[in-house]
Amino acid sequence: MAVLLAVSLVVFLAVFAVGDPVELLINPEATQHEREMMVRALGLDRPVWMQYLTFLGNAMQGDLGISFVHGEPALQIIIERMPATFELVFFALLIASLVGIPLGLYVGLNSDASLSRAIMTGSILGYSIPNFWKGMMLILLLSVWLHWLPTSGRGETVDILGIPVSFLTWDGVRHLVMPVLNLAIPNTALMIRLTASGAAEARTQDYVKFARAKGVRPQRIVRRHILRNILIPVITVLGIEFGALIAFSTITETVFAWPGMGKLLITSIYRLDRPVVVSYVMLITFLFVLINLIVDLIYAALDPRVKLMDRAP
């Protein structure tokens, strides 16, 4: 709660300091009178602390303000964009896990193999490529030169339970490939490193040594003991990354003009649409707290040694 309050105050003031949305919204031919009307209509004529208090009062009742640009509730505009971002992040993490965990496991179990070295170096490369440049190079290669995939946008969507998704149409999938890949690459690298270090550590643990001495088949050791043991950090990180990616897929969405929340955030910052920016950051903060909670619960369910009360410092 205190965090939300602090976050909202900081963001509120920051957007206030950037500039005056009226200059951007108003028809330049407007008269002084019209200008004043508009300032009043947006509630910008009052001192900033009063604007903030009004905002807080409304926020208590679940009203985070009306978008200056769209004239509709800011929260609603953000939530409308949510499915697009969720879809992107979901598939990116799916690919990252499907590719990253097996590779990481291999590296962890064969840490001296030259292939392992190559994979680990590759993983460093994976997160070294600047995200926006990687996206641009994907466009250059797959769209401009090879003409395989469309450069941007979301493509055709189908509604499931009223939520539009792209992965069920061919057109949608074609639009999905590059942004998903762009988000997945650094996360695959992360998964590889996480799994590898977990597996390498587990390999030296007594219970694994014991199982090996007992003559348990290697495959079973991997499945029953090692994999299970490294699942906890992997799931923790997946959860956190899910939140993080939803919040910060901004760059990818900007490069591929993907109509998600991140794109909305950037546009809103440029247009000084304060209600949207503030609601966005508050929503993300809330989401983080929620994900943290869920991760803790999964954590506890997977590992009976973890008690919810005493977490690591």
């Binding site: 108003i26 028809n27 031919e29 407007a30 008269t31 019209e34 009307m37 004239g71």
Partner: peptide, 14 residues
């Protein structure tokens, strides 16, 4: 038209 972003359209009528 209280929702209007500015009084641009309403102004001529004044």
């Amino acid at each position: 038209n209280p929702q209007a972003i500015s009084d641009y359209f309403g102004n001529p009528v004044t």
